[in-house]
Design a protein around this nucleic acid. Structure first.
Length: 742
RNA sequence: GGGCGGUUAGCUCAAUUGGUAGAGCGCGAAAUUGACGUUUUCGAGGCAAUAGGUUCGAAUCCUAUACCGCCCACCA
């Protein structure tokens, strides 16, 4: 007997993965009918599109959870006889990757602002492609049974093509528009960000009460006040009823006399400060709103580097932090500071990547109108056409969709999919011989390739921006299936069955996939959304490099085996709930692996002379065991269908260890020592129960179970035998495609 | 300001949906060259955050309260 007393995961994992890969069964087109009865069922597809993994580093614990949950689902369904497709993908991850790469550049003493965009793009591409290979092999090492022949990358030409088609359609439908609106600007990364990409941070500042003619205004940002020429009060505020809308007032301000105009607007909070404020529409979202409503002028005060513009007079070129105290000093010397409130607590927006204070700016950008896209999504969710697991996410997503704002799509980074928009001069430059025909043609053309003006020689210049990476990710389920003109795949596998991803990105991604999927394909891209929680460290703390508590899943698998990590991530992990990953827990499941190994070893040793052709006559107790096994299979099946892997896993675990090992194996020992019928029956029972357990454990612990199953198939009784009793038929039969116990 | 969760054994979490609370880890005691010491057996440990209510029956449903966490939000 080659099989040894201690299970050594390292010895078998690569070998087993290769066995699966070579079998071709990751590709649903190659799957044989699981059994005669299941022949019809195999035609039924079951599809999961893997959330494209960021190709900019290593897999972390969260990825390990994704791979495990999804692999469990897909292996289970494959064994149930479905045409199971798990389509893997990798993500160029736009801004995220650029940020990672910029950090690398910084370490090398370089800067992206000193590089030509094409050069930077090339370097990041190189970096991403290297990481892509790395990530792929890491995904494999976790046992993911995904169809690599259908793998997609978010920068594949075919994917980009689909993204462009959607963009053009949205544009033609009037849902995409170019607008000069206020956006979130990160001065460090030199790009605009969506609201989701900013964080609200509590900050303690000073609140300055400044004399503005007859008014007193309260502000935390005196440096934006240079151009303020509108003073706003609430129309119902009796304190200011002497002032009329539009009334002009001459007053002395920071850099000399200005003429202010009184504006009355309902958005003013009468209880805040003095109930009066001046507005800076260029650098504040509320102020921008007021200016839009009243048709007021807007002008920039701060540039995109975060420095004051010439309007600031003597303060020009200064950074905000530097300028603020100096401005206050000057205001004080002019007697314009009434008081300063210390410890003013307020919430500011910061960049989610670098915590830099967001400077709102007005910028021309591409926007997507969200209300018309959200409406059908809301209806579909309310009608439960897509089911959320856990259920409370339904409320969360509806709440977000109901108050959705337009989505700024452009990003000023190089790493991403270029926006297929081309800008043209306002007036055509006439071609030779057509000088008399002055034509005003389209200033913007949406086209994947460089367009030509039919009237003139003016050149079209491509929009320099790229898409928010979530705009393309939002189309992933249908794009990944329909790419390469694969109408057949699209027809067979779309809409998909389950989208499994982190609860964290429900707005970023899930909501947008539903909206864009509905828009582009008229169908919700998936039937179920399964959301998992965060993977935390053993103490329940969020993992972070700075805290030094990051658990590398690959180190864990190295130590305890992939199967131990997998089942350790599943047990006790309910959907949506965050999970504390304790190494001791994984160690416990390593012990379980070993238990499986040794129980199997016992069976193998005692079945060398087993003859499966003889009918086993079972005693009452043994019949009870079989009954109990069937009951377990039935219950487990229900739980698996219900996405309750944590309970299913625990049930099988418990049965295997405390019923099969502790009771049934122990009971069998005396019978095995005998000869004839009694021994035969004991052997039959052991084999039957072990192989069914291996099947039920397989989705959770694929490597060890497959290895043992292969060993069982090499029992003398099975070599070349065509018996129908027991699961072992042919050497080529893999546990991976065996039929789930009934 | 609005929304969503959570509070169950020392720790981390369950309970197939209303039927006298269970796992893993940890802890205590014992066994032993047995498939497995990464083992086996036995054991201790819970007025379910609090206060009410509905019910024959509540960890589970309802109403408050208190903590903890998360998300959304244009009080300058």
């Amino acid at each position: 007997m080659k099989i040894e007393g201690q299970y050594d995961a390292k010895k078998i994992e690569d070998k087993i993965y290769k066995l699966w890969e070579d079998s071709g069964f990751f590709n649903p087109d190659n799957l044989p009918p699981a059994s005669a009865k299941a022949r019809a069922r195999r035609r039924k597809p079951f599809t999961i599109i893997m959330p494209p993994t960021n190709a900019n580093g290593n897999l972390h614990a969260g990825h390990a959870l994704v791979m495990t949950i999804e692999d469990i689902m897909i292996r289970y369904k494959r064994m149930r006889g479905f045409k199971a497709l798990w389509l893997p993908g990798l993500d160029h991850a736009g801004f995220e990757t650029q940020v990672v790469y910029e950090k690398k550049l910084e370490k090398e003493g370089r800067s992206r602002f000193k590089m030509a965009p094409e050069e930077l793009y090339k370097e990041i591409l190189q970096f991403t492609l290297e990481n892509k290979k790395n990530i792929e092999s890491q995904i494999k090492s976790l046992g993911a049974s995904c169809d690599w022949s259908r793998e997609k990358f978010t920068l594949d030409a075919e994917i980009i093509k689909i993204v462009y088609e959607t963009f053009e359609k949205l544009y033609n439908d009037g849902l995409v528009y170019r607008g000069k609106k206020i956006i979130n600007w990160c001065a460090k990364h030199q790009t605009s960000l969506s609201d989701l990409e900013t964080e609200n941070t509590e900050k303690i500042d000073k609140l300055y009460y400044l004399k503005y003619g007859p008014f007193t205004i309260a502000t935390a940002r005196p440096e934006t006040k240079f151009g303020d020429k509108y003073v706003v009060v609430h129309p119902k505020d009796s304190r200011y009823k002497a002032y009329a809308q539009g009334q002009k007032i001459a007053l002395e301000w920071i850099n000399g006399p200005v003429e202010a105009t009184v504006i009355k607007d309902e958005s003013i909070d009468m209880d805040f400060g003095t109930g009066t404020m001046t507005i800076t529409p260029w650098h504040d979202a509320i102020d921008f709103g007021i200016a839009e409503r009243h048709g007021l002028d807007k002008q920039p005060i701060i540039d995109f580097q975060g420095k004051l513009l010439p309007i600031a007079g003597e303060f020009v070129g200064m950074k905000i932090d530097e300028a603020r105290p100096k401005i206050i000093e000057k205001l004080q010397s002019k007697g314009l500071v009434e008081k300063i409130e210390e410890n003013y607590k307020h919430v500011v927006k910061t960049c989610y990547k670098c915590n830099t204070l967001i400077e709102p700016q007005v910028k021309e950008q591409w926007f997507l109108k969200m209300k018309p896209l959200a409406a059908p999504a809301i209806r579909a969710i309310q009608k439960n056409q897509v089911i959320f697991i856990p259920n409370h996410y339904k409320k969360i997503i509806l709440h977000w969709l109901e108050s959705i704002l337009d989505w700024p799509l452009s990003r000023q980074v190089v790493w991403g999919i270029k926006i297929p928009a081309w800008h043209h001069e306002p007036i055509c430059i006439p071609k030779k011989g057509h000088e008399k025909n002055i034509v005003h043609c389209k200033q913007i053309i949406i086209s994947p390739i460089k367009p030509k003006c039919e009237f003139c020689d003016a050149k079209f210049v491509q929009d320099p921006d790229v898409f928010d990476t979530w705009f393309s990710s939002g189309q992933w389920p249908f794009a990944a299936l329909a790419a390469n003109h694969n109408a057949k795949d699209f027809k067979t596998f779309y809409p998909t069955d389950v989208m499994e991803t982190a609860g964290e990105i429900i707005f970023f991604w899930v909501a947008r996939m539903i909206m864009l999927g509905l828009y582009a394909t008229k169908k919700i891209p998936f039937k179920y959304v399964y959301l998992h929680g965060l993977v935390l460290d053993a103490k329940g703390q969020k993992m972070s490099k700075s805290k030094g508590n990051v658990i590398n899943p690959l180190e864990i698998t190295e130590k305890y085996g992939t199967d131990a990590l997998r089942i350790g991530l599943i047990m006790g992990n309910t959907p949506g709930q965050s999970l504390a990953l304790d190494e001791n827990k994984i160690k416990g499941y390593r012990n379980f692996s070993n238990k499986i190994w040794n129980a199997s070893r016992f069976v193998l040793i005692n079945l060398q002379d087993y003859n499966p052709t003889k009918k086993a006559s079972l005693n009452a107790l043994q019949k009870k065991h079989i009954k109990e096994l069937k009951k377990l299979a039935k219950e487990t099946t229900i739980l698996m269908d219900d996405f309750k892997f944590y309970i299913a896993g625990e049930k099988i675990y418990h049965y295997f260890w405390h019923t099969f090992c502790d009771k049934i194996i122990e009971e069998s020992k005396s019978a095995l020592a005998k000869k004839g019928k009694e021994k035969q029956a004991a052997q039959y029972i052991l084999l039957q129960i072990l192989s069914d357990c291996l099947k039920m454990l397989h989705p959770f612990m694929p490597f060890i179970t497959e290895e043992i199953y292969q060993q069982l198939s090499r029992l003398p009784s099975n070599r070349g035998s065509s018996t129908k009793s027991g699961p072992i038929k042919d050497k080529k039969q893999l546990l991976m495609i065996s039929e789930w116990p009934k």
